[in-house]
Design a protein around this nucleic acid. Structure first.
Length: 853
RNA sequence: GCCCGGGUGGCGGAAUGGCAGACGCGGCGGACUCAAAAUCCGCUGUCCGCAAGGGCGUGUGGGUUCGACUCCCACCCCGGGCACCA
């Protein structure tokens, strides 16, 4: 039994209790955890392993509230699971390449490294002051030469495997940040996710990673992840799997005969998901950039088509997406015809800007009867509409996309009937028959298309990982030899206001020797998207000391996959998709193990912090500075504020965070737990049964709430417990010393993950130097969770009319008898017999009178 | 348009078919104090009532059930995602 410690560790002046002062206790414990390596884990740790990871931050200087929220969840989980006996890998690092530092360099002329290093130190200090505990020995920074080395090594492995390639494509150009962007970095409205600039389209030669090779796996493996459904759906949407059929349509004359000006077999390939509606195809549409356009266009339309194609090319993606435009101006006839293989009839070929050259085959068959967009186009150009699916009764729309029996297919001739008759079939069955028909006649085949495009990774920026590639006049594209890595950007660079990367004009960097022929070569000046850095950092954390490889395979095997990943939902598609791709690719390349297919087993996405409805993030600055709150109320109060305000996955308005209540609560805990406190009426008598039971109930409730991430409920339970305990310990009867101490100690253990500093301080004072975070999480005694008496709710016709105390093990007869004996029930029944009595002992008895019905 | 969330006091929210509103904020009243702060005690969904007590109440309308914030159907509103992807 711990005795109240009135020793030398602190002073109590006569009658004055030492005040709770987070300013003195918080730094003390932060140093303690760091110096004692409380949260350092080694790769040969014998305890069961857990990997808890918060997304590593871009170093933007002092932490903002979003960081606080993010890292509080990760930190409490690390502490909680450690108390549960696990070796928790809890690393931290910095995503330290990126444009803010480069833009600052352009503004000030100062090298981004110094700027970045300073901000890393500021952020590290902030994170420490929140009480976040990490194994800092494992820190990684994207801009460290060692990290650059292995990022480049990975890139070269991907290159050797054909997963990194240089290709020509129409790409997104950000005129403000002066670089190309990946599709994922462009918002739906055509603006850049980072800079907000309207993105332009440019045809450029760029570096890509072949993420599309993994489209199917990226989709299928989503099923095995314990991720928020919302994020899984976003990834599914982004991958955009679409099953359909591709088939060829011969280019013919209007009467269906061979076109003598074209070589035999000239055909356009179309992709459709509705091959069952092919009999309703009345025209066909090509993307303006379709390679066949110039060859098939009829002479009398040549000028018109040329103008249309030129306009489409110069129209930005934004405008092309502006649906409001007149449909008739968005399409253009070509005068060419294609043969519908189902009907044997020729249909006119049109161009339309809404058909994308980069999706499917860049050409579609148009079935206005069953596709609204085709209907609109047919309407605008006066084209024929054939319905091929029977409309349900009362259908009033135009195109019909629902199910129903097929009609009008085939079109009348007996000859067609014999090969492919869809009439009467439902959509699914008709698709099967039509597909079989095409395949049997060698006209087409089933295909799966994805919306996902390859990941564009080159950036025309200085402050990123250089792409380790050389261009030699005689040997072409040559990878930098592995033993020459890392390729580092030079320090003697000048940043010009034009925004152009200084690498592009730095002779010392540009000129190199071709490792293959020994001749002169030019260095690649583009750097990698910073999402490449962050697509493997979680692997490096497993073994950041490795110098012969990015990490040792055994180390990764022993920690991966991440058990709990924590971060913002804004990365739902970007970072999380890239990291999944990289994990699969590295597994296939043998860099990791064959069974490591997914990096993050469980994902938690916490809500954003808003102030006056606006997002508080790195781009909007520190609208409320966490440091100011730490300086006044303390980090523990700030942590509790974040935890108690709302369910963690929801967005939070800063105004809703109740810091005062949390601060008051911690002050109460302080006075309750301070050994010298004389405020409480404690006696030496036997243990107080009801308090002991309440304490065990608290353990059970808080643990259950933790396990379902209901931290706001866990804290509410602790607050209620403190209120009750205070009331009892202030009463004339008081509480037993033994039960009181058990209650307070338990409370401190339960608060150790959420309010770590105050819990550590009070525990040390109560237990002469013991360290709470090295102790085990308390366990509730199940026998004490069973109450002797319980409240029986008595309902009459479903309405609560009385509450009775009954033994917890009361049987049905007892409960029913007690309920029927209740004065209120007797009065309500007024002597009549109840029609029915439903008893669910010992919780509820519902008495049904005949009167209600 | 499609897909996901969500709608409960003045506010944030709690309640996994069985006591709606735990806990916190705010508000009102009181104790302590010369006074204030801090702390403590009480009240605080709404309507009727002097009171005892009762009516109503979880976006709307139906349904299932002895019993619905909870399950089912339809709808309205808010937030987010996707959207010429053929």
């Amino acid at each position: 039994m711990p005795q109240p410690d009135t020793g030398e560790q602190f002073d109590t002046h006569e009658g004055t209790l030492e005040r709770y002062d987070p300013q003195t206790i918080e730094p003390r414990w932060q140093s303690y955890w760091q110096e004692h390596g409380t949260y350092q884990v080694d790769n040969d740790d014998p305890r069961p392993r857990a990997y808890v990871l918060s997304m590593y931050p871009y170093p933007s200087g002092a932490a903002h509230m979003g960081h606080v929220r993010n890292y509080t969840f990760g930190d409490l989980l690390t502490r909680y699971r450690t108390m549960q006996g696990e070796a928790v890998l809890s690393p931290m690092g910095f995503d330290s390449f990126g444009l803010p530092a480069e833009n600052a360099a352009i503004r000030t002329g100062r090298h981004p490294r110094g700027f970045t290093d300073e901000r890393i130190e500021e952020l590290r200090s902030s994170i420490t002051r929140i009480g976040g505990v990490y194994d800092w020995r494992r820190e990684v920074r994207s801009h460290d030469p060692a990290y650059i080395h292995w990022t480049q090594w990975i890139f070269l492995r991907l290159f050797a495997a054909g997963l990194a390639y240089r290709g020509h494509a129409t790409v997104n150009w950000d005129p403000v940040d002066q670089t190309v962007l990946a599709n994922e970095q462009v918002l739906a409205d055509g603006t850049a996710e980072r800079s907000g600039a309207v993105v332009e389209q440019r045809d450029l030669e760029q570096w890509f990673l072949r993420i599309t090779d993994y489209a199917e796996q990226l989709l299928d493996d989503l099923d095995g992840l314990e991720w928020p459904e919302r994020v899984v759906i976003q990834q599914r949407n982004w991958i955009g799997r679409s099953e359909g059929v591709e088939f060829e349509m011969a280019i013919v004359d209007a009467d269906g005969s061979h076109r003598s000006d074209l070589p035999d077999g000239t055909a356009v390939r179309v992709f459709t998901t509705r091959v069952d509606t092919s009999f309703g195809m009345t025209f066909c549409v090509l993307a303006p950039e379709h390679p066949l356009v110039a060859r098939i266009v009829a002479e009398e339309y040549a000028e018109q088509v040329e103008a249309f194609v030129a306009r489409a090319r110069h129209t930005s993606e934004v405008d092309r997406l502006a649906v409001e435009g007149e449909l008739s101006t968005r399409g253009c006839p070509t005068g060419a015809w294609a043969l519908n293989p189902f009907t044997g009839r020729a249909v006119p070929i049109y161009l339309a800007d809404y058909v994308l050259g980069s999706y499917g085959t860049g050409a579609v068959m148009a079935v206005p009867g069953e596709d609204q967009r085709d209907w609109d186009f047919a309407d605008a150009f006066g084209l024929e509409i054939i319905e091929t699916v029977q409309r349900p009764d009362g259908f009033e729309g135009q195109a019909y996309t629902g199910d129903g029996p097929h009609v009008n297919s085939p079109a009348a001739t007996e000859e067609q009937d014999a090969t492919c008759n869809l009439n009467g079939l439902g959509v699914a069955e008709a698709k099967r028959v039509a597909t079989d028909h095409l395949v049997a006649h060698g006209l087409g085949e089933s295909v799966v298309n994805y919306r996902l495009r390859d990941w564009l990774v080159s950036r025309q920026r200085f402050w990123g990982c250089p792409i380790p590639i050389l261009y030699c006049d005689s040997c072409g594209v040559v990878p930098v030899p592995l033993d020459e890595l890392p390729v580092l950007a030079p320090d003697d660079v000048e940043f010009t206001p034009t925004g152009q990367s200084p690498l592009q004009s730095h002779e010392g960097f540009l000129n190199a020797t071709c490792p293959e022929c020994g001749g002169p070569a030019r260095r690649e000046t583009d750097t990698l998207d910073t999402f490449v850095d962050s697509s493997w950092y979680f692997l490096r954390f497993c073994d950041p000391w490795s110098s012969a490889a990015p990490f040792r395979r055994e180390a990764v095997e022993s920690w991966m996959p991440v058990d709990q990943y924590i971060g913002g939902a804004e990365h739902a598609v970007l970072h999380l998709m890239y990291a999944r791709f990289m994990t699969k690719a590295l597994s296939d390349l043998g860099v990791t193990t064959p069974d490591l297919r997914e990096p993050f087993k469980r994902l938690f996405t916490q809500g954003m912090i808003r102030l006056d409805g606006t997002k508080m993030s790195k781009s909007k600055g520190n609208l409320v500075a966490p440091e100011e709150i730490i300086d006044t109320l303390g980090a523990d109060t700030l942590r509790l504020g974040h935890l108690s305000v709302k369910p963690p996955e929801e967005d939070v308005d800063w105004e809703a965070v109740g810091l005062e209540g949390c601060s008051r609560f911690l002050n109460r805990v302080w006075r309750l737990a301070l050994p010298a406190s004389t405020e409480w009426n404690r006696h030496a008598g036997p243990a107080d049964d009801s308090l002991t039971r309440a304490t065990h109930r608290l353990i059970a409730d808080v643990t259950a709430a933790f396990d379902r991430w209901s931290y706001h409920v866990a804290i509410a339970r602790c607050m209620a417990f403190v209120n009750d305990l205070q009331r009892e310990a202030r009463s004339d009867t008081g509480v037993s010393q033994e039960s009181f101490d058990h209650a307070v100690d338990t409370l401190l253990l339960l608060l150790a993950p959420t309010a770590p500093h105050i819990a550590a301080e009070l525990w040390e004072r109560r237990h002469r130097g013991e360290h709470i975070h090295e102790l085990a999480w308390p366990e509730a005694d199940p026998t004490l969770l069973v109450e002797a008496m319980t409240t029986l709710v008595v309902q009459v016709d479903g309405k609560v009319r009385d509450r009775l105390d009954v033994p917890a093990d009361a049987d049905e007869a007892t409960c029913t008898a007690a309920a029927l004996a209740s004065d209120k029930v007797v009065a309500l029944l007024g002597g009549t017999e109840p029609a029915r009595v439903i008893a669910r002992p010992p919780k509820v008895v519902n008495i049904v009178t005949g009167a209600a019905s």
